[in-house]
Amino acid sequence: AVSDRLIGRKSVVMEAISPQNSGLVKVDGETWRATSGTVLDVGEEVSVKAIEGVKLVVEKLE
């Protein structure tokens, strides 16, 4: 599936994300709604860990 190619990809937070609120990330020039178990600020680099419905699950790059 097209979405499977996103797992493991680097992306950049475009709208802040917290455990309570989804935000936005940009992956390969496309904007996606995303969630995370931690707070992520605009501009942080993250990695796509999973896809749940139409949202990406991301975490901060170490």
Score class of each variant (00 low, 15 high):
residue 37 G to K: 13
residue 46 V to F: 01
residue 12 V to Q: 06
residue 39 V to L: 10
residue 47 S to P: 01
residue 4 D to C: 14
residue 7 I to P: 03
residue 53 G to F: 02
residue 49 K to A: 09
residue 37 G to H: 14
residue 61 L to G: 07
residue 47 S to H: 13
residue 15 E to Q: 12
residue 29 G to L: 05
residue 30 E to R: 07
residue 62 E to P: 13
residue 31 T to S: 10
residue 47 S to W: 15
residue 14 M to A: 07
residue 41 D to W: 10
residue 62 E to T: 12
residue 4 D to G: 11
residue 31 T to L: 15
residue 4 D to W: 03
residue 48 V to I: 14
residue 8 G to K: 03
residue 32 W to V: 09
residue 2 V to S: 12
residue 16 A to S: 09
residue 34 A to D: 08
residue 32 W to F: 14
residue 28 D to N: 09
residue 43 G to P: 02
residue 45 E to R: 09
residue 6 L to F: 06
residue 31 T to V: 14
residue 8 G to M: 00
residue 29 G to P: 00
residue 54 V to Y: 11
residue 17 I to M: 05
residue 32 W to R: 09
residue 36 S to T: 03
residue 43 G to F: 05
residue 2 V to Q: 12
residue 27 V to R: 00
residue 22 S to I: 13
residue 18 S to E: 05
residue 10 K to P: 08
residue 47 S to Q: 14
residue 7 I to E: 03
residue 49 K to C: 12
residue 35 T to N: 06
residue 27 V to H: 02
residue 15 E to K: 09
residue 19 P to V: 05
residue 16 A to H: 08
residue 2 V to K: 11
residue 58 V to D: 02
residue 38 T to E: 14
residue 38 T to D: 15
residue 16 A to D: 04
residue 44 E to K: 04
residue 21 N to W: 09
residue 9 R to C: 10
residue 38 T to F: 10
residue 9 R to D: 02
residue 27 V to W: 03
residue 22 S to W: 08
residue 57 V to C: 06
residue 24 L to Q: 07
residue 35 T to D: 09
residue 27 V to D: 00
residue 48 V to H: 00
residue 29 G to I: 00
residue 7 I to M: 06
residue 32 W to H: 14
residue 54 V to P: 10
residue 8 G to Q: 01
residue 61 L to W: 13
residue 7 I to T: 05
residue 30 E to P: 07
residue 62 E to S: 13
residue 4 D to N: 13
residue 8 G to S: 04
residue 37 G to R: 11
residue 30 E to Y: 08
residue 29 G to D: 12
residue 9 R to K: 13
residue 33 R to I: 15
residue 39 V to G: 07
residue 5 R to P: 07
residue 23 G to D: 01
residue 14 M to Y: 08
residue 17 I to D: 02
residue 45 E to G: 05
residue 6 L to T: 02
residue 27 V to E: 00
residue 26 K to F: 14
residue 55 K to S: 15
residue 43 G to Q: 03
residue 34 A to F: 00
residue 61 L to K: 07
residue 37 G to A: 14
residue 9 R to M: 14
residue 35 T to L: 07
residue 32 W to G: 08
residue 27 V to G: 01
residue 15 E to W: 00
residue 59 E to P: 01
residue 35 T to I: 14
residue 17 I to T: 04
residue 43 G to Y: 04
residue 57 V to H: 07
residue 45 E to Y: 11
residue 7 I to D: 03
residue 1 A to G: 12
residue 60 K to P: 12
residue 43 G to L: 04
residue 35 T to R: 03
residue 29 G to F: 04
residue 28 D to H: 05
residue 38 T to H: 13
residue 52 E to S: 10
residue 13 V to D: 02
residue 49 K to D: 03
residue 20 Q to R: 11
residue 23 G to Q: 00
residue 40 L to F: 09
residue 32 W to D: 09
residue 54 V to R: 13
residue 34 A to H: 02
residue 32 W to A: 09
residue 20 Q to P: 15
residue 14 M to I: 15
residue 7 I to L: 09
residue 57 V to E: 05
residue 33 R to F: 14
residue 51 I to G: 03
residue 3 S to H: 14
residue 48 V to S: 01
residue 27 V to L: 12
residue 52 E to L: 11
residue 7 I to C: 08
residue 40 L to I: 12
residue 21 N to H: 14
residue 58 V to N: 03
residue 15 E to R: 05
residue 59 E to W: 00
residue 42 V to L: 06
residue 45 E to N: 08
residue 13 V to S: 01
residue 5 R to N: 09
residue 5 R to M: 09
residue 33 R to C: 14
residue 20 Q to G: 14
residue 55 K to L: 15
residue 4 D to P: 10
residue 3 S to E: 10
residue 61 L to D: 09
residue 40 L to C: 15
residue 51 I to F: 06
residue 11 S to C: 15
residue 41 D to F: 12
residue 9 R to N: 05
residue 57 V to Q: 06
residue 27 V to C: 09
residue 54 V to K: 13
residue 2 V to C: 13
residue 38 T to P: 01
residue 17 I to C: 04
residue 48 V to M: 02
residue 55 K to W: 15
residue 12 V to E: 05
residue 9 R to I: 06
residue 45 E to S: 09
residue 6 L to C: 05
residue 58 V to A: 00
residue 55 K to A: 13
residue 20 Q to N: 12
residue 9 R to S: 07
residue 37 G to I: 11
residue 41 D to I: 10
residue 6 L to N: 03
residue 40 L to P: 01
residue 56 L to S: 03
residue 48 V to N: 01
residue 43 G to C: 07
residue 41 D to P: 09
residue 39 V to I: 12
residue 27 V to K: 02
residue 46 V to N: 02
residue 62 E to R: 11
residue 15 E to S: 09
residue 44 E to Y: 05
residue 44 E to A: 09
residue 53 G to I: 03
residue 15 E to I: 08
residue 16 A to L: 09
residue 5 R to A: 10
residue 33 R to E: 15
residue 57 V to D: 02
residue 41 D to K: 12
residue 9 R to V: 06
residue 34 A to L: 00
residue 25 V to Y: 00
residue 33 R to S: 14
residue 12 V to I: 14
residue 46 V to M: 01
residue 8 G to R: 01
residue 55 K to T: 15
residue 55 K to M: 15
residue 18 S to H: 07
residue 26 K to Y: 14
residue 17 I to L: 04
residue 13 V to Q: 03
residue 50 A to I: 04
residue 11 S to W: 00
residue 22 S to G: 09
residue 24 L to F: 10
residue 54 V to W: 11
residue 42 V to F: 05
residue 2 V to R: 12
residue 32 W to M: 10
residue 5 R to V: 07
residue 58 V to Y: 00
residue 26 K to N: 11
residue 58 V to L: 01
residue 1 A to T: 13
residue 45 E to F: 13
residue 52 E to W: 10
residue 39 V to K: 11
residue 29 G to E: 12
residue 25 V to N: 01
residue 15 E to N: 05
residue 22 S to F: 07
residue 61 L to R: 07
residue 32 W to T: 08
residue 45 E to K: 08
residue 1 A to Q: 13
residue 57 V to T: 05
residue 9 R to W: 04
residue 60 K to R: 14
residue 7 I to K: 05
residue 37 G to D: 15
residue 37 G to M: 13
residue 43 G to H: 04
residue 54 V to A: 14
residue 54 V to I: 13
residue 43 G to V: 02
residue 5 R to L: 09
residue 53 G to D: 07
residue 10 K to Q: 09
residue 59 E to R: 01
residue 38 T to W: 09
residue 28 D to E: 08
residue 57 V to I: 10
residue 51 I to C: 05
residue 55 K to Y: 15
residue 38 T to M: 13
residue 48 V to L: 01
residue 22 S to D: 15
residue 29 G to C: 12
residue 11 S to P: 04
residue 11 S to E: 03
residue 61 L to T: 09
residue 48 V to E: 01
residue 24 L to I: 10
residue 49 K to L: 12
residue 40 L to D: 02
residue 28 D to C: 15
residue 54 V to H: 14
residue 1 A to M: 13
residue 39 V to Y: 15
residue 29 G to W: 04
residue 14 M to L: 14
residue 28 D to T: 01
residue 42 V to G: 02
residue 20 Q to V: 10
residue 35 T to S: 09
residue 28 D to R: 03
residue 47 S to E: 14
residue 34 A to G: 07
residue 3 S to M: 14
residue 11 S to Y: 03
residue 44 E to F: 06
residue 39 V to P: 11
residue 32 W to L: 10
residue 37 G to Q: 13
residue 36 S to K: 00
residue 25 V to L: 02
residue 56 L to N: 02
residue 26 K to P: 02
residue 20 Q to W: 11
residue 32 W to P: 08
